[in-house]
Simulated assay, not measured.
Amino acid sequence: MARRTVRSRSEPRWPLAAEPLPGLFPAGIHDALRLLSVLAIAAAVAAACSVLNRRPAPFCDSDDPYAAYDSCEPCPENGRCVDGEVRCVEGFKRRGRVCVEDGLLTHTANKISELLQLRICDEHARALCGQPGKILLQQHDISSMADELLSKDAARLSDDGIKVVKDRVLQSAHGFLETTSTYDKVQAFKCPELAAELRRPLSCQARQWISSNIVFVITFCVLSAALLRILWSIYQRWALSKRAEQIYEQVCEILEDNAINAKVGNSECEPWVVTSWLRDHLLSTRERRNTLLWKKVEELLLEDSRIDQYPKVVKGEAKVVLEWQASGSLSGKFKKMQGAAGKARRSSVGAIKLAEEICGSSSISGSSRDKKEQCSSTGKEATNPLM
């Protein structure tokens, strides 16, 4: 009889799943970090290989309007694409897959825009001043001016660059100019009134200002002329008075010295001096024509109590003479007050001539030789200068 195998109660009825091998999963935090690092490096390597192996799509030709953008990339702005390659126009540089400006176009456009605006405003300013010039400009006039200015400063630009610059210049001009309409409803452009007025020449501005303020200008000129005349009259009176005082002081010195010399022993010179002689000696030719000057001197002489003025017959002619009446000599004090260094000295020849003229009218007695010797000595003793 076959034996029946008796199973132990401790053994399971169904076999359990196989347990994982020891060391398959990380046992700690350090092993987990190590595993994540390995996975990240593997992902980065896979992504780099995918990018390097992928070839960028070519650029669509600029002349092909039916290019499908799923098979090629559109040509960037300011670029020319041929056979999948891009070439930037003049004034632009390629950076990656786009064309960026290098500054030449902007500089040229700004310069041409400024020159164009100045020319348009100068035309307007000439018209405001009554000279030949246009105020209203149409689109083709502005375009012609821009072409003319670009032809003078387009040596470094290609045709594409010139086109870009012109578009920017026209856009800037339209933003600066005022838009209006002509009598036939045509759109026109003109320089702003304020900018045109500032561009007028100074002569034109002055002329227009005077014409618009003619009443004020005439009134100002009349008042200015009257004021200048009054000031000039005051100055002339002051100068006349100043000069008369100088001549008066010289006359006093001459009369005082002559009176002292006349009292010297054996002197035949008279103590008086003819007024006309003093006038002719002290005044210049131009000053003699001014009768007010000598009249002012005579007024000062009449007010001086030290000087006596009376008529006298000299050589058969009636003359008016002056004589110093003060006793003693004040010449030393007077010269001290005036300062010897500050006064001009008369020449010895003039002193001798004046002495001869004064002494010539003295007494008739005596030889002419003695008179000349006496007058010469008198002239040498005279210390006061003749101006």
Rank of each mutant, 00 (worst) to 15 (best):
S151D: 15
L202R: 04
A155K: 11
Q171R: 12
K190G: 11
L170S: 03
V165H: 11
E178W: 02
R243D: 09
R200G: 06
R156D: 09
I247P: 00
E178R: 06
I210V: 14
S224H: 02
L150H: 03
W238S: 13
L202Y: 04
Q208Y: 12
Q236F: 03
V215T: 06
R243G: 03
W232S: 14
V169M: 04
N258C: 12
R207V: 08
A259V: 07
Q187F: 01
A225D: 01
A173Q: 04
C204D: 08
D159F: 08
W238G: 14
W209C: 02
A188P: 04
Q208H: 09
R237T: 12
L194R: 05
L228M: 13
V222K: 02
V251L: 06
A206W: 11
R200H: 08
V186L: 15
G175D: 10
E245G: 11
F176E: 11
V164R: 04
Y235E: 15
T219S: 10
K166L: 00
A195I: 07
E249I: 14
A244I: 02
V251C: 09
C191K: 01
D159M: 06
R243E: 13
Q208D: 08
I260V: 14
C191Q: 04
A244H: 03
L228F: 14
Q250G: 08
K166W: 01
G265I: 08
N261S: 13
F176I: 02
R199V: 03
E256H: 04
E256C: 05
I162K: 12
V169G: 10
I214E: 15
K185N: 14
A239W: 07
L202P: 01
E256I: 06
E253R: 09
K166S: 01
D257I: 05
P201Y: 10
R243C: 04
N258T: 15
V217G: 01
S212R: 05
K166D: 00
V222A: 10
R237W: 07
S203A: 14
V222S: 01
P192E: 14
C252F: 04
I247T: 04
L255I: 08
L150P: 00
N213Q: 06
C221L: 15
Y248E: 05
L150E: 05
S158K: 01
E253P: 00
C191P: 00
I254H: 04
W238V: 15
K152S: 08
N266L: 15
S212C: 01
G265H: 13
W232E: 13
Q187V: 09
I214G: 12
E193P: 03
I218K: 10
N213Y: 09
R168K: 11
Q171C: 12
I218N: 14
K166R: 15
K190L: 15
I214M: 14
N213L: 00
L223I: 03
V217F: 09
V164T: 10
Q187P: 03
K152L: 13
E256V: 03
Y235V: 11
V165D: 02
Q250S: 14
S211E: 13
L228D: 00
C252D: 05
C191S: 08
E245P: 02
W209T: 02
S203H: 04
V222C: 10
R199I: 06
